[in-house]
Design a protein around this nucleic acid. Structure first.
Lengths: 144, 144
DNA sequence: ACAACATAGTTGACTTAGTCAACCACAACA
DNA sequence: TGTTGTGGTTGACTAAGTCAACTATGTTGT
């Protein structure tokens, strides 16, 4: 019988989310792990990423993302910039305050990352990530 | 810089949950993936598992689990049996109908499982699962 | 040029998942 | 026997995810 991958994966994600939430929450201002996830992407592709790009990357529902972005704008971490190529769309930029949050919370996230990786080799981590990507790809392929 | 494990893992779980939901939902009667997860455990340890055992295994919050079980009982898939050793507690048993659901939905889950694993070797799967368990363990250790 | 269709983003309404605190009944034990 | 601990339940809540309908703009084919 084929090994069941789901259960350990559910467990891992559960633990990871909890640790992340704790790590983030300490400092805390109205930011959830999901906000952080989006904020990091915006920070990385500063002013060169649209809401739809983020939907493609993350598979977050576009409705949900619209609200997340609205909240991040409300908090002053993110702003919209006109997209001259498409008036329906806009680029997302991060503010100085937003950058600060990302920096601050990235160190918290990295602590969690390190804890998670303890006892594993770099090669194992790399393989793990590769397999995770492959499996996600398999599932997504199959879903259209 | 250390590789970020979170993003591919979030993606994978997201895709997996969506596929699972689709697979389960086709047949469908008031069952969510989480119900299924619990139901499978009860089926496996039939009449030898308590609510608290499941909490230990899955890290599902005990409040949430109490409600899940209540729902499964309401659907007639699960029943409580007195625990002679501890009157606060009870063993969980699965009904014939419950078994049927588990069988039926297991085949759907296995389809998802196979899609996810396509292109990977058994060895890779085994390693992946081992690493996932190790990482969850690392995080949980650290959290008390 | 313009109708038909597609896409980016928004809003509403909803379900599922996860969390925390308070509580009850019973257990364990000093 | 009283204090403290544990299994389970309920209330009240937040976070995450989903689906459908809609607006405004873009794209394509004729």
């Amino acid at each position: 019988m084929s090994e069941n991958i789901k259960e350990p994966l559910f467990n891992l994600l559960h633990s990871m989310k909890r640790s992340l939430r704790q790590a983030i929450e300490v400092d805390n201002l109205g930011i959830t792990p999901l906000h952080m996830r989006v904020l990091k992407i915006i920070s990385f592709y500063n002013q060169k990423v649209t809401a739809n790009d983020i939907v493609q990357k993350t598979l977050i529902d576009k409705a949900q993302l619209a609200r997340l972005i609205k909240e991040l704008i409300g908090l002053g971490y993110v702003s919209k910039l006109d997209n001259p190529n498409d008036k329906r769309s806009y680029y997302l930029g991060i503010s100085g305050e937003g950058e600060q949050i990302v920096k601050q919370l990235s160190t918290a996230e990295n602590r969690v990352n390190e804890i998670m990786k303890s006892g594993l080799t770099e090669q194992e981590i790399a393989d793990f990530v590769r397999l995770a990507k492959q499996m996600a790809h398999n599932l997504n392929q199959h879903n259209e």
